[in-house]
Design a protein around this nucleic acid. Structure first.
Lengths: 232, 232
DNA sequence: ATCTCATTTCGGCGGGTACCGAACGGTCGC
DNA sequence: GCGACCGTTCGGTACCCGCCGAAATGAGAT
């Protein structure tokens, strides 16, 4: 009805620990089956079904049915964005427990990972910092790709200029990194750059999680493109 | 405990219609008493007290006790930011009902209003567009104040350069306008600029709400500073 | 001191919902 | 076709939480 009840309805979707855990798991950007999410969150399959219904009805998730499987996925970058913002708000309060938290999070995850569709962790922050230092990103007056940055992406990096023009999603956006407490590059540019990293095998996934590892090729590429001496 | 339960706890704060309405009312950036919020949301005072406790404990609100009154306020720009993002997510789904919504929202509110601590509505969007057109803001590669924009704020506009350097809050940030469906300027620059508008009586509040009206002085200032012909 | 008024605490009621297990319905592989 | 597997539907239970009114608290005002 009114705007308050809409806001409450949206918040209610995430107000349950199981649904929240599902969304956080889906933050890796990939599609999960209903059963996988049931196991991940530790509830019965029937319970997971109900939760997924609500999340899909609420527009946070989309489904794709394939044979006897039902794959669900975040509905888009804006949902991932929202979840990141909410998670970021949690961090400051947990800051005092930094030592413990740092130990709880795997070293690989802190070193590098994907954050929905872009790079995060020390790797993501290092790339962002190097781009800023090279005048490709402007972080002093907000967060934006400079003209030089656009030229760099379409030139040396070799991205198609067309894929960088995409509707209303911003070209560059800062995303607060929850392990580094620093911003890293998100938005269309972040997503396409991440894609490029995978396509060129500059990074590879570690196991089945969202952690990634920089390859030797990747290190060389970062040196050539950004003058990054060595990460980690 | 884990990150999912923290996220759920945060979302639960907004998952109640009464608490959501309180937060939306507080989005005007001002401090309200507990009683005022009880009336605004239509619940008993005792109920309002309980809700405010939860919102304060959760870190979304801060209180300031003054005599027998208890004033509450949003805990800061980051909370306002979060509420804006959540509200923005609601809009696309309500877009089809645009005609009806437009009628329901007062014309004054659509013309100009405050959004926590910066300008919004047609006025806010017009200022943002004029700044972008003049090369003071960069919206093509994200959302950032340009060097020229910084010089403009500290020069012609007359802002103190020191107040523009403030901790981790970004200098410029885009905030989605829920009546105009366009971005307007937020962040430190947006807040200080809005302050200037009030200090110079370029805008004045209409009644007790969050709607504002551009004065004759304000129109002249916009013409001089940004070459804006006439708004509305 | 006494009155007034904003706010808070407490007990209790009622509704919403997360959860599970069991039964059911598709889909795939043999 | 038959078993194995994934997902869904359907009771039924337990619990949480929002709500109110009445009584209590605390800070001005007279």
């Amino acid at each position: 009805m009114n705007s308050a009840s809409d806001l409450a309805a949206l918040a209610a979707l995430l107000a349950d620990e199981t649904r929240a855990a599902m969304c956080l798991a889906l933050l890796d950007g990939r599609a999960w089956t209903a059963g996988e999410l049931a196991i991940q969150t530790g509830v019965a399959r029937s319970t997971a079904t109900e939760h997924l219904h609500r999340l899909i009805d609420g527009g946070l998730l989309v489904e794709r049915r394939q044979g006897r499987h039902r794959y669900v996925q975040l509905a888009g970058p804006s949902v991932a964005n929202l979840l990141e913002d909410l998670s970021a708000r949690l961090e400051p309060r947990q800051a005092p427990a930094r030592g413990l938290r740092a130990a709880a999070v795997s070293a690989a995850l802190r070193r590098g990972r994907t954050c929905y569709d872009h790079l995060a962790g020390r790797l993501g922050v290092a790339v962002t910092d190097a781009m800023t230092g090279a005048g490709l990103l402007d972080q002093t007056g907000g967060f934006a790709l400079t003209a030089a940055g656009l030229a760099w992406l379409t030139g040396p990096v070799g991205l198609d200029p067309d894929v960088l023009r995409f509707g209303k999603r911003p070209l560059a956006r800062g995303c607060l990194d929850w392990t580094e407490r620093r911003q890293h590059l998100a938005g269309v540019a972040g997503a396409r750059l991440c894609e490029k990293f995978f396509d060129n095998s500059w990074v590879v996934r570690i196991g089945s999680g969202r952690a990634v590892r920089l390859t030797l090729n990747g290190k060389a590429a970062l040196r050539d493109l950004l003058g990054v001496p060595d990460i980690d």
